[in-house]
Design a binder for these strands. Sequence first.
DNA 1: CTGTTAGCGCATTCAT
DNA 2: ATGAATGCGCTAACAG
Lengths: 341, 341
Amino acid sequence: MSTIKEVARLANVSVGTVSHVISGSVPVSDQLRRRVTEAIRALDYHPNHIARSLKTSRTRILGIVVPDMTIPFFPQVIRGAEAAARKRNYYLVAVNSDDSSNRQREVLSLLRSQRVDGILLVVAAGQGSITQITQIRQSGIPVVCLDRLPENISIDSVCVDDCAAADMGVSHLISMGHQRIAILTGPLTLKNEQDRLQGYNNALTRAGLAVDATLIWEANFHQEEITRICGEHLRDAQRRPAALFSTNGVTGLGVLKALHVCGLNTPDEIAFATFDELTIEEVFRPAITTVVQPAYDIGHRATDILINRIERCMLDASTVSIRLPATLKIRETSLALAHVL
Amino acid sequence: MSTIKEVARLANVSVGTVSHVISGSVPVSDQLRRRVTEAIRALDYHPNHIARSLKTSRTRILGIVVPDMTIPFFPQVIRGAEAAARKRNYYLVAVNSDDSSNRQREVLSLLRSQRVDGILLVVAAGQGSITQITQIRQSGIPVVCLDRLPENISIDSVCVDDCAAADMGVSHLISMGHQRIAILTGPLTLKNEQDRLQGYNNALTRAGLAVDATLIWEANFHQEEITRICGEHLRDAQRRPAALFSTNGVTGLGVLKALHVCGLNTPDEIAFATFDELTIEEVFRPAITTVVQPAYDIGHRATDILINRIERCMLDASTVSIRLPATLKIRETSLALAHVL
DNA sequence: CTGTTAGCGCATTCAT
DNA sequence: ATGAATGCGCTAACAG
């Protein structure tokens, strides 16, 4: 790897001049500029960002931490963030936290050690995120939270309007004639899961339906457990709800697996709607009624806010909390039951 | 952000000593060690990797470049790579190339400028990758190619045994009684698409079936175009094949969309098998017969080889080419046609 | 075992 | 408009 010094020697100028033509911050005569660019090409010179960052203490790199990139929602968020970063001349690196607070601590530490200019964070499900976030911010690195918001901390954030989105989905099920509607949530330690549950409550209440605690099923993010938990509730035909709403893609998939295990058909035997697209609805059956989050936009907006913070355009602005609307895609699984019609 | 100097001052030792306790490479007395670790905690000190790397010219960071993280195959590869990297105390950052040679040049340049210790590359579909790879290797950064292999260059690589995998899928269709079998490929400029086509040819030939050029359909990676191309071929009922094999997940999805547009049912009107899982087969219909690649393993193996190269365990070893076997998941879409039975 | 110091590659004053 | 010199934070050699 050639250095700026070698370029300077070949072009027969000083390192300062090379630096100037690269940064463009100081005028350089055409002749020297040409000599320098030629030398750069000849040596296949790539400026050492490491050295540059050590000097400037800025890396133009953003980090994004997500629980698990194999959950389809997150790559979309990342793509949105990447696009926004690119537009403003930043790069984005993505890492997984495995939804583990400990691993999250590790990757955040990595990002700090790498001196990324800012961090986009989808917090892990466990405890301890607040301390981690506080430390990072104290060290001067801006953090924006996406999708999942930590509680008891004032921080820039971008996510869907969870309460309204769940309300919309459940209200739709109600409008299709269903009354006994169950909800399968992720861990309720997560604020956004709580909010989605709240939306469910709101929708029922507004429709004059009683909220039945036995129809609120809390799960986690482990596929087998979700399926087991859901299956247990569905087994008893007497108690079985007319419709089921799940608050995220992972639990949604668990619902489908549980229905499959129990030999239940949707929508004939039970209606179903979920947060997050589970598959390509055009070509696969059942076509699932879905509350679709603007994943790309969430990533994009969050990144814009983050870069604003970094570049001090928003130094004294108070916390920004963006709540984006979700979209309801009505499909087959929420059709009214035959015997209700 | 505190520095090693501040830690040294607070612990009342020299910076050298602090460095020694952090690296563990040089013995330090228990007393000083304790003082130092306390100071580190007190100051919430995070070593500046930037400065360290400038000194050591090693970053312990690996980069992986994939065409598009939203294609489910790639996150799995990345996870495998991440796990392998973590085991050997490296970190992994992932970036997208958008399957564009130009963008690939940009991100590779970024990775070089960041001085990553090694690069995992799934080459973009267009031309120009070879020059890019050659330059990187000349600069001393090891590169391992995954999934897609560039031609005319000797380089470490890990991918599925494309020819055998396609052969397996097509042979299965033949064994189900199909004779007129079409293949929908991605761009044949890609070596692995060529190999998969070769596997198709081999399977037909071995079965004594003629290879019909009008049944070889070449597409690209653009969803709408794939659907259009496939739809055009399927429209004519006279010429329609009995079965269709697609060589990757993106074209596979295009097939399903085209079938949907044409109102064709699989397997009743046309059998179908594809490379790569398109959805969660347990719960969605149609359940598609699939050639499943060991995506996680591909990432894992490639990363191991890369780190071996980096750490010189394999300095003079010749090029390593790993070919992993695929698995055939036989499901509904490849059932024999009713009128054939 | 512990302290001192040179220098990694670059951006940035400050001279000229 | 160009060049020379300084130091970012750290590691590794060396000295003690």
